[in-house]
Design a protein around this nucleic acid. Structure first.
Ligand SMILES: NC(=O)c1ccc[n+]([C@@H]2O[C@H](COP(=O)([O-])OP(=O)(O)OC[C@H]3O[C@@H](n4cnc5c(N)ncnc54)[C@H](O)[C@@H]3O)[C@@H](O)[C@H]2O)c1
Ligand SMILES: NC(=O)c1ccc[n+]([C@@H]2O[C@H](COP(=O)([O-])OP(=O)(O)OC[C@H]3O[C@@H](n4cnc5c(N)ncnc54)[C@H](O)[C@@H]3O)[C@@H](O)[C@H]2O)c1
Lengths: 212, 212
DNA sequence: GTCGCTCCGTTACGGATTTCACAAAGGTGA
DNA sequence: TCACCTTTGTGAAATCCGTAACGGAGCGAC
């Protein structure tokens, strides 16, 4: 029954959900795989196949009910609940993350911030307390957290990841430019704009005159 | 000769390069695919296969020369030159990007910033001028730029992307939570931490007690 | 009620990607 | 020089993933 779902499929579902939410805001009530596919640069067959891993959500001849499918996807992904998040590292990037208004509306609630710099500890950022990172373990023991965001320098990142994992966290969003090493049952996503740019240059270096 | 290189391969090369740079800093002079693979959670065969698309860089019985392979990868990716980058959108995120010190050392030079808010226009951020985004086209005509970073609200992003592409830019790093539509010869990378979290929740929602 | 059109769910196919496995090459030390 | 150990580069096999294609359900028109 629960046949193994490819990770690529899981990674596409939030994209579908995001598009459906946008369509709903536009007042659309139904959408076909064709239309959704055009919007997302994905073939209609791909969308239908992806969804078919989880059930039958469409109506032949019509398409999918926008709000209905959105609700289903949110349920499948576990987005129909709140998730407790902690942030480690309150440097420039950490500040931006703490103040970013895009997480909360999606159910991701930053409940604690940790930093090793005494100058930051004790502050209140966006109504969230900044703790000494030495207290990370004891805090997480008392206040379970689901997801950890790592925004410390690369040389400290593995250690932070280890502590988060040891404290029971099984999902990590890593901004440090390194590859974290974790047990197989821990989910990790890396965000690195430099890597993204470094792969694009391969494609534009060819016919690039640029130099006037 | 130039057999088609899979994009997944290209996306891994910068990761290899980053690891090699770290190894070099540690004073390592040679590395085997085995050792590199352990560090990056990639199979040795994968690394060797990826590299074999481009040539023969290793020595049997020894492995790869760290600096030599790094130089080769940088050449393959086009990282052996400077790239001119412009940033569109100087909100919270744009500020953080403009001040981030991680691009310049990798050869990505932000040469111009654009925003539509008159309050920002004319400012100097990290020694870079902020232009009115109405001047985007005329500026780019006079000052060729290779890569565009989009950090505007989602509803404005497609328009910004179109203007960048029309001005000749063929690589875009998009931070807005939407799927940009571009011609096939334009490279796009999307960065969205919310999507990343929304795919992780699928994996941790199962055995997650959490609720006390 | 039937026709005709749309569009889903699914299966089968084929292409792309990863893994396997091994011959050959480099290095070391007796 | 030779034996032995390591590790590469690479075809072949295995796996994974995306696309095509089609039967059939829903809907509207008449
Ligand atoms: N700033 C960006 O836009 C950006 C973008 C992408 C990636 N990154 C990466 O994110 C990370 C943070 O970047 P930044 O610019 O905020 O750096 P930063 O130096 O401004 O901040 C790092 C913060 O981490 C804290 N810290 C260090 N070690 C710690 C530890 N063991 N436990 C807890 N806190 C610790 C420091 O006190 C500091 O506040 C870096 O790895 C960087 O490469 C940054
Ligand atoms: N802040 C973050 O940490 C973060 C993280 C991920 C993604 N994002 C996304 O990045 C984008 C920017 O986020 P933000 O928090 O900086 O928003 P913001 O509202 O603070 O800034 C947006 C900026 O874009 C400018 N702008 C608007 N329309 C423009 C146009 N047509 N041309 C040029 N400039 C224009 C505005 O003047 C403003 O300065 C959003 O799409 C957001 O969802 C932000």
């Amino acid at each position: 029954m629960t046949l193994e779902i490819p990770e690529v499929v899981i990674n596409r579902l939030p994209v579908y959900a995001r598009a459906l939410a946008a369509l709903a805001l536009d007042g659309e009530t139904v959408v076909s795989s064709q239309t959704l596919g055009e919007r997302l640069d994905v073939t209609p067959a791909q969308i239908r196949k992806d969804l078919s891993y989880f059930g039958r959500f469409g109506k032949q001849g019509r398409g999918y009910n926008v709000l209905g499918l959105l609700a289903k996807l949110r349920e499948i992904l576990g987005l129909d609940r709140k998730w407790r998040v902690c942030l480690v590292g309150l440097g420039r990037l950490g500040q931006a993350i703490a103040e970013y208004g895009g997480f909360e509306p999606q159910g991701f609630q930053i409940v604690a911030i940790f930093d090793s710099d005494p100058a930051s500890v004790g502050k209140l950022v966006n109504a969230v307390h900044v703790h000494d990172s030495a207290e990370l373990d004891s805090f997480l023991r008392q206040n379970p957290v689901d997801i950890g965001i790592v925004a410390v320098p690369a040389h400290a990142a593995q250690q932070v990841v280890d502590r988060l994992v040891n404290a029971g966290i099984r999902a990590i969003l890593n901004y440090a430019p390194m590859t974290p090493h974790v047990a197989r049952d821990v989910a990790v996503r890396n965000i690195d704009p430099v890597l993204a740019m470094q792969s694009m240059t391969f494609y534009i270096k060819k016919a690039e005159p640029s130099g006037k």
